[in-house]
């Protein structure tokens, strides 16, 4: 932390400033999270009438459950693909939007809209657009000779889910990349213009390295998006079907614990997610700290 800033006299004031945040996270984050940890070691009837300590049984069951493993792998592949594709598309659009002179503003507005659409809303819209009865996309794919059938084909369902998740995520990445590009000093850009004639070479030798911090930051944001925020999307679009092939870890917590009323197992799944998230947070945090210092 920047030491010079921490100069103000400390009396009671800073505590008053930080208190609301601390109270809220203690009550609404740590207390429920602690309960989740506690429940992950218990076997409890759904109604909370009886419970017993079972040690790591809930965890052991998960690791022996092949569907949990599959869901784990799907989550990783899904998150990786969604992040990669939406970052790549957004970067391409941002670079172009930054370089064109005409209609730059219009592009910027048009390309950020979708940012505001809720995942659940996107999923519902996609449900209609891919619908067998009234949708246009299933029809179009079929006309192209692809027997597109997301209800029974795991690949088609995953494809559909990734497409919609990318659609929803491109604008966020676009905004950040554009912001990153615009914060590159003009002098540097002009120098690059003179040094490298080729567009792609200039991009890869000058622009991209400068965007690397943004990209890395975005990668973490994107991974967490794919991990967690796609819940509403999955719930309205595939419900994890077919054959559980589009079940992410968060959706599985919801399916087992929430719909299936098995609190012990879902709590164990929550704890595993918490650990994953802690790792992600630690990475992000380290990275951001480094960036501040460079």
């Amino acid at each position: 932390m920047t030491a010079q800033k921490q100069k103000l006299p400390h009396g009671i004031t800073p505590y008053l400033f930080i208190l609301p945040q601390l109270v809220i996270i203690a009550v609404f984050f740590f207390w429920p999270a602690a309960q989740a940890v506690h429940m992950s070691f218990m076997l409890e009837d759904p109604w909370g009438l009886a419970s017993q300590f079972v040690g790591f049984e809930n965890y052991a069951l998960l690791f022996s459950d092949s569907s949990y493993g599959r869901s784990f792998i799907f989550t990783l592949v899904f998150s990786f693909l969604v992040s990669l594709i939406s970052l790549a598309l957004a970067l391409l659009l941002a670079v172009k939007a930054n370089s064109v002179l005409r209609a730059q503003k219009s592009y910027r507005v048009l390309l950020t809209w979708v940012y505001a659409v809720a995942p659940a809303v996107a999923g519902l819209g996609a449900y209609f657009i891919f619908n067998r009865q009234i949708g246009v996309l299933s029809q179009a794919f079929n006309d192209m000779g692809w027997a597109f059938n997301p209800e029974t084909d795991p690949f088609d369902a995953s494809f559909m889910l990734i497409l919609v998740a990318v659609w929803k995520q491109v604008p966020v990445n676009f905004i950040f990349f554009l912001a990153g590009l615009q914060s590159i000093p003009k002098s540097l850009q002009e120098a690059a213009q003179i040094d490298c004639q080729s567009d792609s070479k200039r991009f890869f030798t000058i622009t991209f390295p400068l965007l690397a911090p943004t990209s890395f930051f975005l990668l973490v944001i994107n991974l967490t998006y794919a991990f967690f925020e796609t819940f509403g999307l999955i719930d309205t679009l595939t419900q994890g079907r077919p054959a559980g092939a589009t079940t992410t870890l968060v959706y599985k917590v919801y399916q087992d614990g929430f719909l299936g009323a098995d609190l012990g197992s879902s709590s164990a799944q929550s704890v595993i997610l918490m650990i994953l998230v802690l790792v992600l947070t630690a990475i992000q945090f380290r990275f951001i700290e480094r960036r501040v210092h460079y």
Binding site: Q21, L22, I25, V27, F28, F29, F30, W31, P32, A33, Q35, A36, M39, T224, F228, E229, F231, V250, V253, Y254, G257, F258, L263, S266, Q269, S270, L273, M274, V277, L278, L280, T281, Q284, F285
Partner: peptide, 20 residues
């Protein structure tokens, strides 16, 4: 304490949160 909460969504601790 504050930054631990950074990324953990409500969906995975929803039943205890409801109770609180």
């Amino acid at each position: 304490a504050i930054f631990t909460t950074l990324l953990l969504p409500l969906e995975v601790r929803i039943i205890p949160s409801y109770a609180v």
